[in-house]
Write a protein that binds this DNA or RNA. Structure first.
Length: 721
DNA sequence: ACAATAGGGATTTTT
DNA sequence: TCCCTATTGT
């Protein structure tokens, strides 16, 4: 590849950033939609192809696995060579890689396991219980949060002086116990990945200088989202001879509440001097009105680094602003507008509904069902966080390493096999006294227990050993397929009456498929099973092989960061919702809310529609709300205000839908979610849910006037329309 | 061991 | 209101 090809289709500033001399560190302030990912990948392309930098001398860090995978793909195309060995990944992924490469130096066994958020919660909770701490006074969540907060700052228990703060004092006790528990059991939580790998290098000068020399170029994406530890991590790898290339946008920092420090961008200029700063201010995404309104909004924040985005794509359409009576009315309006876009030839996945809080998705979901518009809600449980998947993986972990106590605890009595809490507590105590793991303890002490418990425990350990033997020569996906049957998980979930759609067994099947397409090459410093287990913790999304679909996308503004859509609906712009009530007392929190709003608005390419409701049903009660302050923070000239005529109510739309006609789902005789039904007394309604089938089925119906009810199908005499 | 029931909490969540 | 967890009862 030659130079023209690398800078092809880059504007002046982009190309200046990409072709910066290799001897200089740089900060690229890249506004929303200014092509930062492109700059980042092309920069690497430039260094490798033009400056003959070896790909192993490049370290590229992102925040999400999605971003890392995208960069890998783009680099593959750009460099036209395999980049398998390249250090491109998330902070946590790369820290993990360091620890796997040098476990001994990091005081770990080669078998160490990663604790995800939920595993961590369970551990903290148990430790608190053992320490007789009152969960009422000390919520596990808060203590867990406290511990993680400290770790994100690189603070160890010994560094903390609780003073007279009782909560800190008690949390600190748990922190100490927690650290001991993790060390004894070879466990690493997310924050610990960073702290531990930092300490690994810090305390080992030979290793440190090896990596400092090796990584001639360190590139960091989304720099505004780095927390203290991540910043220190990058700084540690910097020795003054190598160079950093950081891309970020202070206006899009929306994770301050998780420890991200915008100030890190400012510290950069001091700690990595000399530093060249380049601003990317041309926006290629949004039309004029959207961009100008966004600019005006974000200009209200103080302490900005300063940037003003412009576009040459013209003003485009005005921003629609809809004043809804209720959240239901809001959903009616938004979904009708989406239907219009679809009628005009847009596809569903070009439309996104963004909101501040997940609870807001419900009203939209119901309305989308009514319209038969396909949709997907992001957020909520991810694939590898599902209980059934975690259970299957716990068996896999135990088979791989019987010392894995987290896995042991999880499945020793699941599916139930007569090992109750009392028995497990005895096993724990034995393990503690004899400095051994739970699995060993179970084998050693089983005979000292009542016959029933003895048999059950021996049965369990033998099951694991049996499965180890049987799968010795199987590959990963065959192993998974074997274990989900042999462990009794499939049998258990097929009998699960609460899972009417069979989604749990389907998920287990999906796990087999996922294991099959696992590419072990990228983490070849572990065996295949360990590599797979680690990946499932580090990237819990599980959408490795999800086919692209045509769905309206529903998500929080947070999860929309980095994405763009032609038609964006930004909903719930009300005081106390967006901005959130919890943020209104602190100016710095309010600034983050404003940035969040800015992020939401700048997702829109062609058309932005903002809405708010005067009255909203939230947490079991109706609340009257004022329009969000953000709405008055940009000029009205960018707005097209739409108000519902007085007297119109949500109910009226059904008879006399001012936006669109209802689309009736086709009748096929089957009971299905979304079906319209008629009841002799309650009238028309929509099926929201059901359980069981045939005569014994119970159906949940939302009636137009009578509210939502559960009905016995056999007595209800529902007429399916 | 499981189903029924009562109580409490309910921003955001890259890893 | 709704959902998740802890407790209680069979």
């Amino acid at each position: 590849m030659n130079l023209p090809e690398i800078v092809n289709e880059l504007n002046n500033e982009q190309s200046q950033a990409v072709t910066l001399d290799g001897t200089q560190s740089a900060l690229i302030l890249a506004g929303a939609g200014s092509g930062k990912t492109r700059v980042l990948t092309h920069r690497i392309g430039y260094l490798v192809m033009q400056k003959n930098v070896h790909i192993d001398a490049v370290l590229a860090v992102t925040f999400t696995n999605k971003a890392a995978n995208e960069m890998r793909e783009r680099l593959n195309t750009l460099l036209r060579r395999p980049i398998r060995s390249m250090w491109v990944g998330t902070f946590h992924g790369l820290a993990h890689r360091l620890l796997r490469a040098h476990p001994i130096e990091a005081n770990l066994s080669s078998q160490f396991q990663i604790l995800d958020q939920k595993d961590q919660f369970r551990v903290v909770k148990r430790l608190m219980k053992e320490n007789q701490m009152d969960e009422g006074k000390f919520p596990v969540k808060k203590v867990q949060w406290f511990i993680n907060q400290q770790k994100d700052e690189g603070i160890r228990p010994g560094d903390i002086d609780a003073g007279h703060n009782y909560f800190i004092k008690k949390s600190l006790e748990v922190f100490v116990l927690y650290e001991k528990h993790c060390n004894d059991n070879d466990l690493i939580d997310f924050a610990e990945l960073l702290v531990r790998s930092y300490e690994l290098l810090k305390n080992n000068s030979a290793l440190l200088s090896h990596y400092q020399t090796r990584f001639e170029h360190i590139l960091v994406d989304e720099f505004q989202d780095t927390n203290t530890m991540q910043y220190k991590w990058v700084k540690l790898l910097f020795n003054g001879k190598n160079k950093v290339f950081c891309v970020g946008d202070d206006d899009q920092s929306i994770y301050g509440w998780r420890g991200a420090k915008i100030e890190n961008i400012i510290k950069l200029e001091k700690d990595f001097a000399p530093l060249q700063t380049i601003r990317l201010e041309q926006n290629y995404r949004s039309t004029g009105h959207i961009l100008k309104a966004s600019n005006a909004l974000i200009a209200r924040n103080s302490n900005r680094m300063g940037k003003s985005l412009w576009t040459d794509s013209g003003d485009g359409e005005l921003i629609d602003l809809y004043e809804a009576r209720t959240e239901i009315d809001e959903a009616y309006f938004v979904v009708s507008a989406i239907q219009k876009h679809l009628d005009n030839g847009a596809s569903a996945n070009e439309c996104a509904i963004l909101y501040r809080s997940n609870v807001q998705s419900r009203a939209f979901e119901e309305r989308l069902i009514k319209y038969n518009i396909p949709y997907i809600i992001y957020g909520g449980l991810r694939f590898f966080e599902r209980a059934e998947i975690k259970n299957a993986l716990a068996y896999l972990r135990l088979m791989e390493n019987t010392a894995d106590s987290v896995a042991f605890e999880r499945v020793v009595n699941f599916p139930t096999r007569g090992i109750g809490n009392a028995t497990v507590e005895k096993v724990r105590e034995f393990a503690r006294k004899n400095q051994t793991n739970l699995f060993q303890a179970a084998i050693s002490m089983a005979s000292t227990l009542p016959t029933r418990a003895t048999n059950a425990l021996i049965g369990f350990t033998q099951l694991i050993e049996q499965m180890q033997d049987d799968t010795e020569h199987l590959d990963l996906s065959e192993k998974v397929a074997y274990l989900i049957k042999e462990s009794g998980l499939v049998a258990h979930y097929s009998n699960d009456k609460t899972d009417k759609t069979g989604s749990k067994t389907a998920n287990l099947e999906e796990l087999i498929a996922d294991a099959k397409q696992y590419n072990h090459e990228e983490d070849s410093d572990m065996n295949e099973t360990m590599g797979y287990i680690s990946r499932t913790s580090l990237d819990s999304s599980g959408n490795g092989n999800v086919p692209p679909t045509q769905n309206v996308q529903l998500m929080t503004v947070h999860s929309a960061k980095g994405l763009e859509f032609p038609y964006v609906f930004l909903a719930g712009l009300e005081e106390d919702l967006f901005p959130s009530r919890q943020s209104k007392d602190e100016p710095y929190l309010m600034d983050e809310e404003r940035r969040l709003c800015y992020v939401g608005m700048t997702r829109a390419m062609k058309k932005l529609t903002i809405s708010f409701a005067i009255k909203r049903f939230l947490h079991g009660q109706s609340i009257y709300a004022y329009p969000s302050r953000f709405l008055s923070e940009f000029p009205e000239k960018h707005l097209n205000q739409i108000k519902q005529k007085y007297g119109a109510t949500a109910q009226n739309y059904q008879k006399d839908d001012v936006f669109n006609q209802d689309i009736e789902p086709q009748a096929n005789g089957d009971l299905s979610i979304g079906r319209t039904v008629k009841h002799s007394k309650f009238g028309f309604g929509t099926v929201l849910n059901f359980e069981g089938d045939g005569e014994s089925a119970r159906v949940q119906v939302k009636f137009k006037t009578a509210g939502t009810k559960w009905l016995i199908s056999a007595y209800a005499n529902l007429e399916f329309l």
